[in-house]
Design a protein around this nucleic acid. Structure first.
Lengths: 253, 253
DNA sequence: CGGTTCCTTGACGCATATCAATCTGTGTGG
DNA sequence: CCACACAGATTGATATGCGTCAAGGAACCG
């Protein structure tokens, strides 16, 4: 049982493609889901889910930072997602069948909303809007995974970092020329499939094209320095698209 | 309008996690979906969908081979999926919003069932079993993508090829010691994120551990030579799991 | 201040991409 | 039936880019 008002306000403030679990859901449905959910706080470093665990909850971040990753016998880790406030995880795993293929780790003390597996599975069959939301979220994770795959395959470290910054910049609506790295550099580096050393060297390269780095703050010379790293399905989300200054969008014309 | 009997027989014969679009669906629903669908044949090499296209159909393979991939400005390609009879594509893309992030290419003359986007989107809201099937399929693609990501990150070419063969072997239910490569070697190589040369050299390495290759036929010395390439969420699908001969499963005990 | 964690920088080696040549199989046409 | 062309696969030689290892610097905290 929760203090509903606080949670509901939070829910309503966090609706987008990556995190809109409750988007367009009826008041009744939200009540029903929340009634059976709980809120819990986890310390930094806590492994909420381990590879091989049976999925028991969908986790929604109210506050804090979370990382999902896989690990092999040599102890090497591959980061799958880096998530911040409003995002959810384990929704996809729940529908994969079988044990969890991922770890879920708290990177910064996190307050999470826990929605039990049974409630989700049942509610999916009763509320088609809810299941459509889940579909959209899982599809969006999948899309992100596809980007990671071609990043590893065909993009140089420079392009990978550039593309990562570009998506962050677009997420901010191209408003600010500053980008804040929400995670430690070594974590971002692993997410981008490279070592911290290579990440560091790559950041130096970026300086020459007008992207300066100080600590965890990235500053862009202007809103177009990242356009070279764009691709077609990112361009459609860009507020600057088809502006004459964008080298990428000009290609299409 | 279709010759329903043939298609329906096909549908009923192809139900699994990757391809069970019609699993547990009522007769009425199937009728409704098929009534609005069509069957079409495409030649080898045909690009059914291009990066940037608006998704218009779900495609289900009745006969033939399909590849989905992404491409960058340098013309380099990253294969996302290799699909055969019974599998579907573009279901996930449909729920991503925006244009297609992938190409869909016919690798071998293909007969496809085309289900229009509008029908799918509408039916999802009316049939919760159908939307659950879609969820399961998209989640399973996502899981596969996660495997690809950590393969690129943490696995050597040898491990990647070994793991690929292992999954093929398990798909066959560990019945046969032969594995048939459904696609040309260069296509498989790209899917595994390496060049054809590296793939070829890797196959030679595999000979020394009891995996021989002749043309597109892989022969295993026994059912356990691939166990070294296993991981926890593959092991649960393995019919040999926890048999004493499996070096991987023994580790857990 | 001393200790710790994180980041950066430098030197080095290796694994894989790249380039080029050869081999194999298959289909075509004389 | 053989000669030829062509695509795919293999093999070899080379180079380069990233990871690895090691050391040094910066920020933070008790």
């Amino acid at each position: 049982m929760l203090s509903n008002i606080e949670i509901k306000n939070f829910i309503y403030s966090q609706n987008n493609a990556q995190s809109g679990l409750f988007e367009s859901i009826s008041e009744d449905s939200i009540q029903h889901l929340l009634k059976n959910s709980s809120v819990q706080t986890f310390d930094t470093g806590k492994l909420i889910v381990q590879q091989g665990d049976t999925p028991t909850y969908i986790y929604m971040i109210i506050e804090g930072l979370i990382r999902t990753f896989r690990i092999n016998d040599n102890g090497e880790e591959a980061t799958i997602r880096l998530l911040t406030k409003g995002e959810t995880c384990m929704e996809a795993v729940m529908f994969m069948g079988g044990p969890s293929p991922i770890y879920v780790e708290v990177m910064e003390e996190a307050k999470l909303l826990l929605i039990p597996e049974a409630i989700v599975k049942k509610h999916v069959l009763e509320d088609s809007q809810f299941s459509t939301n889940l579909l959209r979220i899982v599809a969006s994770h999948y899309k992100n995974a596809m980007h990671q795959i071609d990043a590893m395959n065909i993009k140089s470290p420079l392009q990978r970092v550039g593309y990562y910054f570009l998506t962050k910049h677009i997420e901010n609506g191209n408003k600010s020329l500053d980008i804040q790295l929400p995670f430690k550099k070594q974590v971002v580096a692993n997410y981008l499939g490279m070592t911290p050393e290579t990440f560091s060297r790559t950041l130096k390269q970026l300086k020459s094209i007008g992207i300066s780095v100080e600590g965890d703050k990235i500053s862009l010379k202007d809103s177009y320095v990242l356009c070279n790293f764009c691709d077609i399905d990112t361009a459609v989300k860009c507020p600057n698209k088809e502006k004459e200054n964008c080298s990428f969008c000009q290609l299409d014309n």
